[in-house]
């Protein structure tokens, strides 16, 4: 059953956790330093927040490759392409 690959799920879960706690930490730091140093930490935290879903697609894609599951590695690549397109259309322009 495809849901039971333990190691892959653990890596994915860790990616999400790392993203969540890093973003949370930076934003809280930003809120406390707001009055002294502007919004830089908060902005960095929100950037981490925005990047986490993209990183987790890439991580899932690599996990699929390691399991020699080419079909789902390609699906991940497809999702990544759409999200990167949104990034290019949105933030770069």
């Amino acid at each position: 059953m495809s849901r039971r690959d333990d190691a892959a799920d653990r890596v994915l879960s860790l990616t999400l956790k790392a993203g969540a706690y890093t973003a949370f930490g930076l934003i809280v730091l930003g809120l406390f330093l707001q009055r002294i140093k502007g919004l830089s930490f908060s902005t960095a935290g929100l950037m981490v927040l925005l990047a986490t879903p993209v990183i987790r697609i890439a991580v899932a894609g690599v996990q699929f490759l390691r399991e020699h599951d080419l079909k789902y590695a390609l699906v991940s690549l497809g999702v990544l392409a759409i999200v990167v397109l949104a990034y290019v259309l949105g933030i770069q322009t």
Binding site: A20, A23, F24, I27, V28, G30, L31, L39, S42, T43, G45, L46, L49, L50, T52, P53, V54, R56, I57, V79, I82, V83, A86, Y87, L89, G90, I91, Q92, T93
Partner: peptide, 29 residues
């Protein structure tokens, strides 16, 4: 992932106000 995709467009357009988003997101976490 879905929300991040559209968030890039909103962010690029200047529709994400950091001073409002930061305290909200901290609370949400």
């Amino acid at each position: 992932v879905t929300a991040a995709t559209s968030a890039y467009i909103y962010w690029g357009r200047g529709d994400v106000r950091v001073n409002i988003a930061a305290p909200l997101v901290a609370g949400v976490f």
